[in-house]
Design a protein around this nucleic acid. Structure first.
Length: 404
DNA sequence: TCTGGGGTCCTAGGACCC
DNA sequence: TCTGGGGTCCTAGGACCC
């Protein structure tokens, strides 16, 4: 039962950020418990799942691939904690990781399995606290404010319940931060990893948030961090001590205002339970760089396949789109995109292929390519009659009716 | 030692319309 | 003849996130 509107108990806004611990690797450890305690990395691109590994717990250790033997492109998706000790982390190139820890074992990513676990842990959360925002395969925000028990101990009681329920249902651990808003909750969920809970109140800003490196903040990436560094600003507190007008002059009006608010712990973004996709895309990095002329046939086949895959994705999920585009990455890692908007939204592979082909004619093709991608944007959801639904809810009533 | 694949949002200029 | 704005759509690139 919701409390009566004149309830004397003051409710604080309590927002949780939940982050699964080393998610992909942890899912793999459930299947291969013999890898527990060892340095293991997930990733490496397009390696097919190894048949020899399908036997699970009975697979001997020497059946697993060694990182030191790995050849090819690709990055680490997730590393177990024993692997992180060697300095290996997400998004690191496989070749660099191999130098740091050649004895680490490599597993190919099994996204179908991770998505299944993702669905399961999110279901557990929604059963307990329905206001949940999906932030990808291993992360969510949860609004504790109106959940029964969500105010107790600043949210710790509910966080413990969610942790235990997820572990009972999946065998996986997670870390949770509970704070007055998403910004701080996200930072707080990293304070006690793995399997930790951190409770942060508004008054903790100076003590817990200001000492953090600016780079920890969601929205400060490598570029912004480098610029801050050049200006002698290293921590969130360093930013907080700057004048708002100066921040706006230095980083642009919107960005500077955001930095000012952020550094003072201000963030009123709601937890959003539903969202509709803006675009869908498929892309692939080649095992070797391809040339538009020398490798025409191979490139053409990949291109057609990408268009088919995007079309399948759109059709399966019930969307059509009007803006069709391509993405190229050259051998120097520079990226080019071209897109074209057509009159009628589509999810048809041949139409996408034709328009994407037009886009391809507008882009330089002298350099070798390492990546090719196809994207469909300006999406519309298909209605039950198979026609696109109006973009912003029901159409306006006729003008005559509006007059009354 | 080169750097995956799937996304979102923002900016900025030009076209075009009122 | 010269000089306006505002609004929206389209396109390209880039920063950032998981």
């Amino acid at each position: 039962m919701p409390p009566p509107p004149d309830s004397p108990v003051p409710r604080l806004r309590r927002i949780a950020h939940l982050d699964m611990d080393a998610f992909f690797a942890s899912v793999e450890l459930l299947r291969y418990p013999q890898l527990r305690g060892l340095p293991v990395v997930i990733g490496g691109g397009r390696r097919k799942a190894d048949d020899a590994l399908s036997a699970g717990a009975s697979v001997p250790l020497d059946a697993f691939a060694r990182l030191g033997d790995y050849v090819g492109r690709g990055v680490i998706t997730t590393a177990t904690y024993p692997a992180r000790v060697f300095g290996i982390g997400s998004a690191m190139g496989m070749m660099k990781a191999a130098r740091l820890c050649p004895q680490a074992l490599v597993l190919p990513a099994d996204f179908e399995r991770y998505r299944d676990f993702s669905r399961r842990f999110k279901e557990v959360i929604r059963d307990i606290a329905p206001v949940m925002e999906d932030r990808g395969i291993d992360e969510v925000y949860i609004d504790f404010t109106d959940v029964p028990g969500g105010q107790r101990e600043g949210g710790r009681t509910l966080a413990r319940l969610i942790q235990k329920s997820i572990f009972d249902a999946t065998g996986l651990t997670c870390s949770i931060g509970v704070a007055p808003n998403k910004l701080i909750a996200k930072l707080a969920s990293e304070f006690q990893k793995p399997n930790g809970i951190s409770i942060v109140y508004e008054d903790d800003l100076e003590r817990l948030i200001w000492p953090l490196p600016a780079r920890k903040v969601n929205g400060i990436g490598p570029k912004a961090d480098a610029k801050l560094e050049r200006l002698g600003l290293r921590t969130v507190g360093d930013i907080a001590r700057q004048d708002r007008a100066w921040l706006e002059r230095t980083f642009g009006r919107a960005n500077g205002a955001w930095m000012h608010a952020m550094s003072h712990g201000q963030d009123d973004r709601p937890v959003v339970t539903e969202s509709t996709p803006v675009s869908m895309s498929r892309e692939t990095t080649f095992e070797r760089d391809l040339h538009a002329v020398d490798d025409r046939a191979e490139l053409g086949a990949v291109f057609t396949r990408l268009c088919e895959r995007v079309a399948e994705d759109l059709q399966r999920k019930g969307y059509v789109g009007r803006t069709i585009g391509i993405k190229l990455r050259y051998d120097d890692f520079k990226t080019a995109t071209r897109d074209q908007t057509i009159a009628e939204a589509t999810a048809d592979a041949a139409t996408i292929r034709r328009v994407a082909g037009q886009c391809l004619k507008r882009v330089p093709l002298e350099r070798r390519l390492r990546l090719l991608g196809v994207r469909v944007g300006a999406l519309l959801r298909l209605g039950p009659d198979g026609r696109p639904l109006a973009e912003d809810g029901p159409a306006e009533p006729p003008r005559e009716l509006q007059l009354f």
